[in-house]
């Protein structure tokens, strides 16, 4: 039942993202990508948070299941960060004239991708399971500390072409027309549910891989 609802919710988002007028008239038709770009970025932050929380639980309980949960969340987080980067650079091509401009927002997401890329390099470099889990848990905590800084602070401190007030204004008040909200918030909810679904599957797959390796 939940799956059907998710299917209908995302279909609703896709259809209305096309039918309603473009969310940012000044940026033109391409701004419709907003409904997918921002939720992708949101899911990546959420996934990195979930990864850090499971890393902390692993350090407390020393149960390898939490390591699997933590690394699976990071994998999905990296995927969605990549999707946000790709959708963002498509938008940049139309609005700013080039796919990549080394705008502060692009630099910060690039650093974030490198940080989480290094997380997997670290995991693949350590063979012993307990050591790998402990190191990754500590790394996931350190890596997440950079997330709010790179995602929310850097692009607002440095002068950037990227809009900083498309969802909330400087007083953290939602600033969107009702029509845009009618598509944007369902999209956020849909992406979040999709994340938890994919995450649970990834955890199951990783658990099986570990079982096969162990036995």
């Amino acid at each position: 039942m939940g799956k059907i609802l998710l299917f209908l919710l995302m279909s609703y988002v896709i259809i209305w993202a096309y039918i309603f007028p473009a969310p940012q008239q000044s940026l033109g038709e391409v701004s419709r990508i907003f409904y997918f770009h921002v939720p992708s970025a949101w899911v990546s932050v959420l996934a990195f948070l979930v990864s850090m929380l499971n890393g902390i639980i692993y350090l407390k309980k020393r149960d390898l299941n939490y390591d699997i949960k933590s690394s699976s969340a990071s994998q999905i987080g990296l995927l969605f960060a990549f999707l946000a980067t790709v959708s963002g650079s498509m938008w940049a091509k139309v609005s700013w004239g080039a796919y990549w401009n080394w705008d502060p927002r692009q630099v910060s997401i690039f650093i974030l991708l490198l940080i989480y890329g290094a997380y997997f390099a670290l995991r693949s470099a350590v063979l012993e399971n307990d050591k790998k889990a402990a190191l990754s848990a500590v790394y996931s905590i350190l890596a997440f500390i950079t997330v709010p800084f790179l995602v929310f602070i850097v692009p607002r401190v440095f002068e950037s072409l990227h809009p900083a007030t498309s969802v909330v204004d400087q007083n953290l008040k939602i600033q969107m027309s009702p029509k845009v909200s009618l598509v944007f918030f369902p999209s956020l909810v849909g992406f979040t549910i999709l994340f938890f679904w994919i995450w649970s599957l990834q955890v199951k797959i990783s658990q099986r891989v570990e079982l096969k390796k162990g036995g």
């Binding site: 799956k3 998710l6 299917f7 995302m10 279909s11 896709i14 259809i15 096309y18 679904w197 994919i198 599957l201 199951k204 797959i205 099986r208």
Partner: peptide, 30 residues
């Protein structure tokens, strides 16, 4: 046209995740 293409991509992604989900559930029962 673009709308139909994106809807089809979404349907394909959804069905694939569903298929994976049911396959993993079946595996657990065995």
């Amino acid at each position: 046209m673009a709308l139909i293409a994106i809807l089809l991509i979404w349907i394909a992604i959804f069905l694939y995740i569903w298929y994976l989900d049911s396959k993993l559930k079946k595996g657990n029962k065995k």
